[in-house]
Amino acid sequence: MNAREEILGRVRAALRTARIPAEPPPPPPSSPLESAPSHEWRARFAAELRALGVALHEEASDAAVAERVVALIGTRRLLAWPDATLPPAVAARLAQLPAGQRLDLAAPRAALATAEVGLTAVDAAIAETGSLLLIAAHDRPRTPSLLPPLHVAIVRGSDLVPTLRAALAKLRHALPSAAALHRITGPSRTADIELQLTLGVHGPGALAVVLGP
């Protein structure tokens, strides 16, 4: 008998005597945020980011978002999502950066790893936990939010959802065809040594969110 058949056979045999408490499943827990007005999502998102140690920059216009992004990048080497997945104003502003500052996504990985800032948009932002959701796809590379020591994420007002459930519902058409979905909540951290909080052990040690209108 092959392993699959044998394991399934063992499972069936075990289930005949298994004592598993029969409890009716309760409904999925709901969050009060789900029925709250969307300006409350914004306030909660901001509060959660602050608690996580994320630098939040709220901007009133697309142009201001683009200026803020460029200011955060400064003169550092940049690994960014392709223009098509960034807000047009940001893409236009990045085009004015000095040649060579923005790394070519087709470059070898060792070159990508020298980036000092990673720039991405998001596919959803969760107010309840201050989390960012990024689909992994050909036009949404994984490394900009992973390899550089600083990750700058651009969040539009329309990206905000109250909870993870709402986010998964929003993305339900995009998800099945995506290779992966990543939820990011704050900077990379560890507490493995004597429970001492240490930031940036493998992923970015700093996360900045530019929240647009």
Binding site: A136, P141, R183, T185, G186
Partner: peptide
């Protein structure tokens, strides 16, 4: 913690190795 920092939901291998530049994964 309220949330673990990184939650990876893996659906499978990269879908578009043929894209330019090729999809990561």
């Amino acid at each position: 913690q309220q949330s673990t920092v990184y939650v990876s939901l893996v659906n499978g291998p990269r879908r578009r190795a043929d894209a330019t530049p090729p999809e990561e994964g």
